[in-house]
Design a binder for these strands. Structure first.
Length: 189
DNA sequence: TATGAGATCAACT
DNA sequence: GTTGATCTCATAC
C-alpha cells in the first residue's frame, strides 16, 4: 500500500473538509482494517454532538488536540470510533461508520463471529468490534501504531446524506459515503 | 420485510 | 428514571 500516510495536521481542519476526504482512505489497527466507506461529521455547535454541552470525563478527548481517537460506549454495549478534528480549536469529530474489509479478514471474522463480509464492518458498532477497538484506544494518536492511516487515491465519488440514528439536528446532511459501495450501513438516496 | 425487545453504561432531567 | 451518534435476535405479517 504505497500511499501517503496521513499525519496529524490532516485533522487540524474543519470536520466538513476532513470527513469527505476520509472516504476511500485506508484505516488499519494492528494491521486489521480496510477502506473507509462511510463517515459522519459532528461539529461542536451541533446539538447531536457529544461535545455540544461541554466537556465531561467521557468526551474529554474531543476537547483536546486534533488527530486523536475518541472512543465511546454506545447504548451500553457497542464501541464507536471517532477522529478528533479542529475547527477553531475545540470539540469536533468524525464518526467512522463503515469500512470495506481488506486486511486481516480472518481476525475480523473471528471477532465478529460471522463470515459475511458485508456485515463485518458496516456500522459503527460492528466496525469497532471487528477491528478490536475498545476504550483502550481512547486518546491514542492516529499517526502512531496501532493506527495506520493512508490517504485515498484519486477522487472517489462521494455520496452525501442525512445522518443516522440521531434525533437532534437529524436533517443536517453531514453523512458522507463511497457512492455505490456495498459496505454502507445504509444506502444513500 | 417489518417492527419490537433486550443488552447495559454515562450523562442528563 | 430516561435517553442515546447501536446491533442482534425473535416474532409477526
Amino acid at each position: 500500500m504505497p500511499r501517503p500516510r496521513l499525519k496529524r495536521p490532516f485533522f487540524a481542519r474543519s470536520v466538513h473538509e476532513v470527513a469527505p476526504e476520509l472516504i476511500g482512505a485506508t484505516l488499519l489497527i494492528d494491521g486489521v482494517g480496510g477502506r473507509i466507506a462511510e463517515v459522519e461529521a459532528y461539529h461542536h455547535t451541533d446539538p447531536a454532538a457529544h461535545s455540544f454541552r461541554g466537556p465531561t470525563p467521557r468526551n474529554a478527548v474531543m476537547f483536546g488536540p486534533p488527530g486523536y481517537a475518541y472512543v465511546y460506549r454506545s447504548y451500553g454495549i457497542h464501541w464507536c470510533l471517532n477522529f478528533v478534528c479542529e475547527p477553531e480549536g475545540s470539540a469536533s469529530a468524525v464518526l467512522i461508520r463503515a469500512i470495506e474489509p481488506l486486511e486481516g479478514l480472518p481476525k475480523m471474522r473471528r471477532r465478529r463471529g460471522l463470515t459475511d463480509e458485508r456485515l463485518l464492518c458496516s456500522g459503527p458498532g460492528r466496525l469497532a468490534q471487528a477491528m478490536g477497538v475498545t476504550h483502550a484506544h481512547n486518546g491514542l494518536a492516529l499517526d502512531y501504531l496501532p493506527f495506520e492511516l493512508y490517504g485515498r487515491e484519486g477522487e472517489p465519488e462521494i455520496a452525501v446524506g442525512m445522518r443516522i440514528g440521531i434525533t437532534k439536528a437529524a436533517d443536517l446532511p453531514w453523512r458522507y459515503g463511497l457512492a455505490g459501495s456495498k459496505f454502507l450501513s445504509k444506502p444513500f438516496r
